[in-house]
Amino acid sequence: MIAGFTEEQIRRYARHIILPEVGGEGQKKLLKSKVLCVGAGGLGSPIIQYLAAAGVGTLGIIDDDVVDLSNLQRQTIHAGNLGRNKAVSAKEFVERLNPDVEVITYTEKLSPDNVRDLIKGYDMIADGTDNFPTRYLINDACVLENKPFSHGSIFRFEGQIMTIVPNEGPCYRCVFEHAPPEGMVPSCQEAGVFGVLPGLVGSIQATEIIKYLLGIGDILKGRMLYIDTLNMDFFEIKVKKNPDCPMCGKRVIDDIHPENYQESCRLW
């Protein structure tokens, strides 16, 4: 038996353990890691599924929404749980998949009041949200708390993924300083979303998180991956730290102020 693993764990993680890039030590790192997944919807579902399967030891899941029939076209972990809170539903899925994973559920909304305290207890954050204010909130809080996070967003057939490591690479505001004016960009509810798309984008986010936790390979730090699934076109955008970025360039704010997370999330 490999020291520190049960017989069941050796069988469960065998395909990881035999990979030289992971091995027993890497698997132990994953089992000791803590990841907070913000949102258990389209992106959150595959992120949670693959982090749990990989044996990430603690998964925080925050979502105040409930499972609707229209979600099941893409949010496969919630099968059979219509009307239940998504964080609670996701916890049930993880418990069935991998008993090694401790799941902490938060059934409230991520807000300027709770974000810094919440992310402090985790090694990495997964952004699986569906709106601009929460995206900017996660970015700014992660920069302030020096927490890495995986950004993913989707629209119709398109997706964007980037890994943000504060102080080392550019942040979300280095690319998108503030959100477009309210109403200028339609949501998935308004414009539709190709059901398999969040599975692809969320799986890439989970890949990035696991690689970061293991310290292997090249992550999407300073690179944004753009995917167009209709034409199966992948495009990489190189991103540098923006000296005018209000978070990691000019550093105009030193705390989370609720007035900065409404509509365009512009920092004045």
Binding site: G39, F132, R135, S153, F155, A179, P198, M224, Y226, K238
Partner: peptide, 25 residues
């Protein structure tokens, strides 16, 4: 050339691509 450019930069001859700002999840 693969990098974002500020919108107040002067246009150069050649090709540019436009990346939509999206927020769905």
């Amino acid at each position: 050339d693969g990098f974002p450019v500020p919108i107040d930069d002067l246009v150069e001859e050649g090709e540019i691509k436009l990346l939509r700002v999206i927020s769905g999840g």
